[in-house]
Design a protein around this nucleic acid. Structure first.
Length: 439
RNA sequence: GCGGUCAUAGCUCAGUUGGUUAGAGCACAAGAUUGUGGAUCUUGGGGUCGCGGGUUCGAGUCCCGUUGGCCGCCCCA
């Protein structure tokens, strides 16, 4: 047993683990690029003040924070949003619009370990800046859905719950609640799913019991599960703000319908998301079985760039965490077994054949194929076993007979078929195999 | 921060009312095996029984503490 343990909540990635992690990151990155998002990165260590400014002083208890040797109060980043707001804010006037950015980065939070949650984790973050209308939400929800579908997940596996803090505020305003009371109500709504009626206890303690009729109307909105239901409940409250807001809802849902993504999206006003900096649409992705914590979450935060010292700049963003997401992929059998397999494994007869093979091995590698071979002399039987276990699609066989004839035997390890090709044509044959739908 | 539960090989686990030198399967390595597939057989390496203290002639086993894992609460940007 090793003398030193990893710090609690931290993870080590042995090659198999890292292969899976890289597989996930690679798909996320590809997907973001297909949507026209640009990748950025930023420091892991930031001034503590950046997070206090965004979330308040209480946040410090949940950060890895300390004083550095220069006396600066610093913290390991617990999220990307403040950082990306600073980056975009600093160059807001110079950046070509729309600003569509993403990152894949590690974050740190000083919290208790739980299933799907550790003290360090990775997130895929995507944000759109400078777009005040629901077009940004449309683009981001579509990206979120595709980031999950890219792994083979379907509407059977997950869905996105869409809600709207603005709609809630307008609705509560129409019911006669002031801003302070509205925020207390939203807190109750956030907890309602878990706590039921007790969720309104904090409100009652602060402002007195909630009028039963008002409560009934709040619960009516909370239980809305479709656009027609939303329209009906909202119509009962009336008001221009609300009807304008419904227009945004229709645009979002129509667009997602047109993309063929409506089956992934559920209207659900029960989602309001905890911390209060969201200013409009909010959304969260969950597994359909409801066994795991949230897969992803996001929403609009139009005031945050300015609050952090930048210009007024509307923004929408979301993040997918790697831990819960990987759990879901494993549960559904969607994590590939051979994410790090070589393309080609060479079977080599002896020292002389090894020298012959080396020329092809290096040429194939230089051409971009992943090629492996046994580092020391092994019996043929073991080499074929090693080739099969490696996950390679092809074996190149350099035996005494082949080398003497100036050929290489190419074995398709999946089909269990073999062909002999002249040495000079090995690279071309391998290329044909892999470009011809051979994998 | 609170509560429950657990800790024996890289992994999954046995280990009797406390009793010699702590075991198995898988994995890993070598051989059987000098030309064709995840097999089989043989052999091997690998453990301060999480750590520290206590009880005892004797502790993997009982007691206390501690560290860590898992599950839940709080929180979840």
């Amino acid at each position: 047993m090793a003398t030193f343990q990893t710090l609690p909540g931290f993870r080590e990635f042995y090659p198999d683990d890292l292969a899976r992690r890289n597989h996930v990151f690679r798909r996320w990155r590809q997907t973001a690029h297909t949507f026209g998002f640009s990748e950025y990165d930023a420091p892991v260590l930031e001034p503590l003040e950046l997070y206090k400014a965004k979330s308040g002083d209480e946040i410090e208890g949940q950060l890895f924070s300390f004083t550095d040797k220069g006396g600066r109060e610093v913290a390991l980043r617990p999220e990307m949003t403040p950082t990306v707001c600073r980056l975009v804010g600093a160059r807001a006037n110079a950046l070509k619009r729309p600003i569509k950015w993403f990152s894949i980065a590690e974050f740190y939070r000083y919290e208790r370990m739980q299933k799907g949650r550790g003290r360090c984790f990775f997130q895929f973050n995507a944000d759109i800046f400078g777009e005040p209308g629901p077009e940004a939400e449309i683009e981001l929800i579509a990206l979120l859905v595709q980031c999950l579908c890219a792994f083979g997940l379907t509407e059977q596996d997950f869905y996105v719950r869409l809600s709207d803090r603005n709609l809630w505020f307008y609705f509560l305003e129409a019911l006669g609640f002031d801003d302070t009371r509205s925020r207390a109500i939203l807190n109750a709504i956030d907890k309602y799913e878990k706590m039921g009626d007790d969720a309104f206890g904090a409100y009652a303690a602060a402002f007195g019991p909630l009028d039963p009729e008002l409560k009934a109307r709040i619960l009516a909105l909370l239980n809305v599960k479709s656009l027609p239901a939303l329209e009906a409940v909202v119509a009962s409250a009336g008001g221009d703000k609300l009807s304008a807001r419904l227009q945004d809802w229709r645009r979002v849902l129509e667009a997602l319908e047109a993309m063929g993504l409506a089956r992934f999206v559920a209207v659900d006003l029960g989602v309001v998301r905890g911390l209060a900096y969201y200013t409009g649409f909010v959304f969260e992705a969950f597994d359909r079985k409801g066994e795991l914590r949230a897969l992803a979450g996001g929403g609009r935060y139009d005031d945050l760039v300015q609050k952090l010292g930048g210009p007024a700049l509307p923004a929408v963003g979301f993040a997918i965490g790697d831990m819960t997401f990987s759990l879901l992929l494993e549960q559904r059998g969607l994590m590939p077994a051979f994410v790090e397999a070589p393309d080609v494994y060479c079977v080599i007869g002896g020292p002389a054949e090894r020298l012959a093979a080396f020329g092809d091995i290096h040429a194939l590698r230089a051409a971009g194929f992943r090629v492996d071979y046994p580092l020391k002399e092994l019996a043929f039987g073991k080499q074929f076993k090693a080739a099969a276990e490696s996950g390679a699609k092809l074996a190149l066989i350099y035996g005494g007979d082949e080398v003497a004839k100036g050929v290489v035997k190419i074995r398709d390890l999946t089909q269990r078929t073999e062909v002999e090709v002249p040495r000079a044509q090995v690279a071309a044959s391998v290329r044909d195999f892999f470009s011809g739908g051979g994998h």
